[in-house]
Design a binder for these strands. Structure first.
Lengths: 144, 144
DNA sequence: TATTAATAATTAATATATTAACTAAAGTAA
DNA sequence: TTACTTTAGTTAATATATTAATTATTAATA
């Protein structure tokens, strides 16, 4: 194992972890004709009745230029709608339609099941360390 | 904090970690007119003189349909070349040109510097736990 | 050997990411 | 109020991801 082994570098380890777990979830999303990104948006809307595009971009980690098209397609699928703010006409809220809200009860149990499967082989301590480590990585520039 | 907090889910934590560290590297790649994926291919070619597209796809985690275009662009930039196998005409090897090999000495020091910065705030033990955790995630289906 | 099955790479269609530039609305200060 | 600046969202151009289908070649089997 070389001193600098590309396949063991942090970025590649992160990618490989995602490559392992995402297909499990995408399977479910496809059953509901959702892409992963569309799912992320709905997932956030189930926790927030009304949210601006900017904040939606932050919470889903979807870059705003991408968000435009993804939101368009979710609107076409009748799952969400746009709503321009009255107080600041620059801002646009996104809201789930009834159909969009109804998806939660159908999709979440399936997703939670997979999530539990992924977590299962880890001890509570191991899992905590993993999440803490990732959290520390994602705050590298923010702390002191 | 809800029982199921989307922003603390493993996939989002992984995405956030990547979102934090990748821009640091991409800065460097852009200086050399490389995309991140082009970099990954070169990075692997610096460790392997000659490699098939299939194996390159495995090592870079770039799906093979994407690989076709990325390789095309690297060839156009005179950094690599294709070479069809004589023993099995289905296989195509990819090889770095001299110009491609020369990039290593220019780019690697810069990349290593950033990598060290990222690692720096972690203790050796913390880092090891993080890598181990990620490794375990990426082998979920492979073990026993 | 002729047929069939498997493999490596590619193509096609659609969705998303990246970067820069742009528009409209709001804030700010002379 | 006018000019300058910032902010929220969008558009545009190019690169990559995802999924399914396709081609060329090789392997396998009757």
């Amino acid at each position: 194992m070389a001193i600098q082994d590309f396949s063991q570098s942090l970025p590649m380890m992160l990618y490989r972890a995602l490559d392992e777990i995402l297909p499990k979830f995408r399977c479910i999303f496809n059953e509901f004709a959702l892409t992963e990104q569309q799912w992320r948006i709905l997932r956030v809307l189930w926790e927030h009745d009304k949210i601006t595009l900017g904040r939606l971009s932050d919470l889903t980690l979807i870059p705003s230029p991408s968000l435009v098209g993804i939101v368009d397609r979710l609107i076409k699928a009748n799952l969400i709608r746009r709503e321009r703010s009255d107080t600041d006409r620059r801002m646009i809220f996104v809201v789930a339609t009834e159909e969009g809200r109804n998806l939660e009860a159908k999709v979440m149990p399936r997703v939670n099941e997979i999530y539990k499967e992924i977590k299962e082989p880890f001890s509570k301590q191991q899992w905590g360390q993993l999440i803490d480590g990732l959290d520390q990585i994602s705050h590298l520039n923010k702390k002191r």
